[in-house]
Design a protein around this nucleic acid. Structure first.
Lengths: 204, 204
DNA sequence: ATTTGAATTATTGAAAAAATTAGTCAAAAT
DNA sequence: ATTTTGACTAATTTTTTCAATAATTCAAAT
C-alpha cells in the first residue's frame, strides 16, 4: 500500500522528466518503463493510459508550483509587489516547463478531456490567485473594485494573450529564447502596473 | 488602361467574396475565374500568383476599413470615447472577415512573406491608431504617458491576446458566435477603460 | 496485490497512386 | 500593342496502402 504509492510516484517522476524534456508525442511508454527498469505493463497498472499519465504529470507539476507560490505570496502585503512577484513566477514556470506545456498550447483543440480538465483547473486557480491579490488591495484600501472575479479574469486573459501575441510573431521558432521571455515579462509588468493604477481607489 | 483597372478590380472583388466566405485554402483560382466568366489565365495576367491575389484582397479590405475608421475617429475628441469606438469597430471588422483572416490567425507560422508583410503593416497602422488616441489624451492633459509607442503596443498586444485567449477555450469551434464576440468586446472595453484610468494624469 | 512476458490492437509514417489545383505559354482576339 | 484564352505542364494535395512502431490487454507468475 505504501509501496504502491511509492511506485506510482516513481512512475510519475520518471514520466515528468521525459515529458518535460521531450513532450508528449516524443515520449513513449516503453522509454518511461525502461528508465525505471519496470515493465511497460506496470505503467498500465498504475495509470489507465498515456493521456492519464500525462495529465497526472501536468497536475502534479502545477500543484507543486501553486503550493509554493501561495506560501510565498502570503508574506507579501502590498498588492503591486504581489502582482510583480506572480508575473516573475509565472514566466519562470513557463520557461522551465515550456516543452511539457507545448501540447497544451499548440493543440488546445482536440485535447483529451482529462488534460483539458487539468488546464481548466489550473486556470481557475490562477484566477483565484490574482483575485486574492486584488482582494488584498481592496482590504488595505489601495484598490476599489466592483467585480473582483471578472477583473481577475480580465487580467489573466490579457497576460496569457499577451504572451501568445508576442510568441506568435516568432516565425517557426521551436523554443523561444530567454530574451524573448524577458521581453514578455517586461511588457506584462508594465501592463499590470498601469492596470492596477487604473484600479486604484480615489485618494482622500 | 482604364478598362484594365476595371478588370483588376472585378477580380479583386470576386476574390474577396470567395476568400471572405471560404478562406484561402478552400478557394481555387478556377472558381474565382468562373464567378466572373473569365479564363483562369486572365487572373494570372493581373496577379502574379494566388498568394499575391490573397494579399491584395487583405490589403484592400484593411485599407478601406482603416480609411473609414480614421475619418470617423477625427471627430471624436475624448480619448476614452475614441478607444471604445475603435474597439467596437475592431470587433465588427473581425466578425465580418473572420474566415478571411482565419489563415492569418491559425497559420501565422509559414505565412508567405507577402501576406506577412500586409499583416505587419496593418499591425503597425493599428498601433499608430492607438498611439494617436493616447496622443490626444496627452494633448488635452487627460493622460500622462512616458513611452507613447510602447504603451500603444502593450494595449494592442493585450487586446489581440485577449481575443486569442478567449477564443482558444472554445474547443473545436469553427466559427465563434455573435455572443462570443460580444463577450470579447465587453471584456476588452473593461480592460481598456481601467488601463486608460491607470494612465490618467494626476489631477490638480 | 503486484508484476511480467507475450500477444493483440491501434496509431503513425512513409511511399505510391490518383486527383486536383496552381501556374505557363503560344496563339487568337480585340 | 494589349488583352484574353485554351491547352498544357508542374506542383500540391488527397487517398490509399502497408509496414513499423507504440499503446493497451491479459493470462500466468510472483
Amino acid at each position: 500500500m505504501i509501496n504502491a504509492d511509492k511506485k506510482r510516484t516513481q512512475i510519475l517522476e520518471a514520466a515528468t522528466r521525459r515529458f518535460a524534456h521531450f513532450g508528449l508525442a516524443k515520449t513513449t511508454m516503453s522509454e518511461i518503463a525502461q528508465d525505471l527498469s519496470f515493465s511497460k505493463a506496470l505503467l498500465y497498472y498504475y495509470f489507465p493510459d498515456k493521456n492519464a499519465l500525462y495529465a497526472a504529470v501536468l497536475e502534479h507539476v502545477m500543484a507543486r508550483s501553486f503550493e509554493e507560490l501561495e506560501k510565498e505570496l502570503d508574506s507579501i502585503a502590498d498588492c503591486q509587489t504581489a502582482m510583480m512577484f506572480i508575473l516573475d513566477k509565472r514566466i519562470a514556470f513557463i520557461t522551465k516547463y515550456y516543452t511539457l506545456l507545448e501540447h497544451s498550447v499548440s493543440a488546445v483543440q482536440q485535447m483529451p478531456d482529462e488534460m483539458a480538465h487539468v488546464m481548466e483547473d489550473s486556470k481557475d486557480k490562477e484566477v483565484a490567485l490574482i483575485r486574492g491579490i486584488l482582494q488584498k488591495g481592496v482590504n488595505t484600501g489601495q484598490l476599489a473594485i466592483e467585480e473582483l472575479q471578472e477583473t481577475a479574469e480580465i487580467i489573466l486573459f490579457a497576460l496569457v494573450g499577451m504572451r501568445f501575441s508576442i510568441l506568435k510573431d516568432l516565425k517557426g521558432i521551436l523554443f523561444p529564447t530567454k530574451d524573448e521571455f524577458d521581453r514578455i515579462l517586461q511588457l506584462q509588468k508594465k501592463m499590470a502596473t498601469v492596470f492596477l493604477k487604473g484600479l486604484a481607489a480615489p485618494s482622500r
